[in-house]
């Protein structure tokens, strides 16, 4: 598969990727390297992983990062309740200490968390490590080992090596600088807000039944809105919500009803200040230009 066929295959799944992103995904697949996607919220970073798993027909394993994420939630944990019960049962049956120990520290009592799950699959799954910049440095450091060796060491069980190399996608939206060591292990693609033509294609792919005139207006309006001084710029997901809202309300022309337009801005503007700053007049002006 070349990178252009990958690009079309992704488009068939409803994901319009630009050349840089398609190439980065292609290289990540063919070289077996993790891919780090960086960009503002709502530009479709997480979506890449979902589309990729559909494309490959494999499972998507997701690890949502947060501050304080530790091994017990990311890699594995022993099932303590079962272990305790099992020890009690064994003592009544008169089982010896050593055999109990072997039994309760076997794989039956192991709870797989996303990272361990990903490396124990027979067919390579897509492993999505979402918002890695929310986790702290310790976790980042731990991830380095897994991403380069694809193995996990459990003291009671020994080292578990990957049966198949998962396709690893990491996403970050720049709340914190990532370490150079992590960046160097990954291929990198910066996902930015799409061009007009790309965004129009996305809208058509996701909302097939939308009329061409309205679609053009929506894209023009959203793209103009992003140029305004906003706290939180509307992403692609917001644009799709906006389109869905307008279609649900049966609007055919953005400029036709200022009140409805102002109300449907709730799908695009997510902070109080932004709602306040984009007044009815500004919205009308932007809509007029987009028409």
């Amino acid at each position: 598969m070349t990178w252009t066929t990958l690009q079309t295959a992704m488009a068939e799944q409803g994901y319009i990727a630009d050349a840089d992103l398609a190439m980065a995904v292609h290289l990540a697949l063919s070289l077996g390297r993790p891919l780090l996607l960086e960009g503002a919220a709502g530009v479709g970073k997480t979506e890449v992983a979902r589309v990729l798993s559909q494309l490959r027909g494999t499972e998507l394993i997701r690890l949502q990062c947060y501050e304080g994420l530790d091994a017990a939630q990311a890699i594995y944990e022993w099932n303590y309740q079962r272990q305790l019960l099992s020890i009690r049962a064994a003592s009544e049956d008169g089982e010896t200490g050593r055999s109990v120990e072997e039994r309760i520290f076997s794989e039956d009592f192991l709870l797989e968390r996303p990272l361990l799950k990903a490396i124990r699959r027979e067919t390579p799954p897509v492993l999505l490590i979402d918002e890695i910049d929310r986790a702290d440095e310790e976790f980042e450091a731990y991830l380095l080992e897994i991403l380069s060796e694809f193995q996990v060491t459990i003291p009671e069980l020994g080292t578990i090596t990957a049966k198949s190399r998962p396709i690893v996608i990491l996403t970050a939206n720049g709340t914190r600088d990532l370490s150079d060591a992590l960046r160097r292990r990954c291929l990198y693609a910066h996902v930015s807000y799409p061009e007009r033509a790309t965004e129009l294609a996305i809208l058509k792919a996701r909302c097939g039944e939308i009329e061409a005139q309205l679609a053009g207006q929506i894209i023009g309006f959203v793209q103009a809105l992003r140029k305004e001084d906003l706290e939180k710029k509307p992403g692609i997901a917001e644009m799709l919500d906006f389109a869905a809202a307008l279609m649900g309300l049966g609007i055919a022309d953005l400029t036709q009803d200022p009140v409805v337009l102002q109300a449907s801005l709730a799908t695009l503007l997510k902070t109080e200040t932004d709602r306040y700053n984009i007044t009815c007049e500004i919205a009308q002006r932007l809509a007029g230009k987009a028409a």
Binding site: M23, H26, A28, E38
Partner: peptide, 25 residues
């Protein structure tokens, strides 16, 4: 990476090397 793509096309090479050599915006 260049063995995986059409290495004689400058545009392709540009995209490929960008994915590898860059690390931040």
């Amino acid at each position: 990476a260049l063995t995986q793509v059409e290495a004689i096309d400058p545009k392709t090479v540009r995209h490929a090397l960008r994915a590898i050599c860059t690390g931040c915006v």
